[in-house]
């Protein structure tokens, strides 16, 4: 229960719903009905994403991170508590929020430029104009020269950058990303992290990242929200005071190491609980040989 007290203290320091917050999550809870009875996936979570800041939500697998992602993105309803963008309550996909998904999400039947121009096409912008704008975002993610390629001709990291450029072209005030680099190798992940840092600094883009990767969270964030394992609660909120502008070089600094250790200290217990849970679940399963 100590962790709860720490969380409350952190919350008190930053009153939720303050005018500087782009996104305010208050007392968010979500229960699912399963065949084994109701399961609480998210339990009374509250935190803010200040305007222009980068906030990561980190937790072990199965802690309800993706549930939070889907609720904030408006794809999942039926929760208790509130998600607010400015003065508006999110109840369905919100114009201010742009989502980047963990899974492969580019449209395979569209070229890179037509993928990126997709949100502009929907809002009725003419072909030349939207291609012009799309080119800007394609350059931003470093895919200049690949405009006419199809996603099948690109690597996983490049496809994820197309997806990010497409969401940026939507010009959301809040960029919401669910483990966008989970399927990529560590080196690509660090380099893409650089890209994200650069974009975030250029656009002053308010960003909320869902991740289970500690280095990624420390590398990118101004603030890290650590979640508990099942039910997902706010365990602690850590403000990351590393210099900006930042690059992936930051990972060699001592301060970086200290933050990683701090987050891991909080996560370790949760991750072990998650692992123990997974192991007991696999023991319960009847062996194939018997």
């Amino acid at each position: 229960m100590k962790s709860g007290a720490v969380a409350k203290a952190a919350l008190a320091a930053e009153p939720s719903g303050s005018p500087t917050s782009a996104l305010a999550i208050q007392n968010l809870s979500m229960r699912f009905e399963t065949s084994e009875g109701p399961v609480t996936a998210v339990d009374d979570m509250s935190f803010d994403v200040p305007v222009g800041s980068f906030v990561s939500l980190i937790g072990p697998s199965g802690c309800g991170k993706s549930t939070v992602f889907n609720i904030v993105g408006g794809l999942l309803t039926g929760h208790a508590g509130s998600v607010r963008v400015g003065a508006e309550t999110v109840a369905g996909p919100h114009r201010a929020i742009g989502m980047v998904f963990q899974e492969e999400s580019t449209f395979p039947w569209r070229t890179v430029i037509d993928n990126v121009a997709f949100p502009l096409e929907i809002s009725g912008i003419g072909r030349d104009e939207r291609h012009e704008q799309a080119r800007h975002f394609i350059n931003m993610v470093g895919l200049h020269g690949f405009e006419r390629r199809y996603p099948s001709e690109l690597s996983g990291g490049m496809r994820q950058r197309v997806a990010i450029a497409r969401t940026l072209a939507f010009q959301p005030s809040i960029l919401l990303m669910d483990e966008p680099f989970a399927a990529l190798d560590e080196q690509t992940r660090l380099l893409l992290g650089d890209k994200i840092l650069q974009i975030q600094q250029d656009l002053k883009q308010t960003t909320m990242l869902i991740t289970h990767n500690i280095t990624e969270a420390v590398q990118l964030s101004d603030r890290i929200v650590v979640m508990t394992y099942r039910p997902g609660k706010v365990k602690r909120i850590i403000d990351v005071d590393l210099p900006r502008p930042r690059t992936s070089e930051v990972i060699t600094s001592t301060a970086f190491g200290a933050y990683v250790a701090e987050v891991w200290n909080d996560l370790r217990e949760e991750a072990s609980r998650g692992m123990a849970d997974a192991e007991s679940a696999s023991q319960m399963r009847p062996s194939r040989r018997s």
Partner: peptide, 29 residues
Amino acid sequence: VRPTLLNVGRAFKLNGRALFWKVQFPAAV
């Protein structure tokens, strides 16, 4: 059609008809 592709459309606030013609149908072609 992969649910993620439909979610992309929803996140861009596509209505039912646009979601069908812009995402679901081409994905099913």
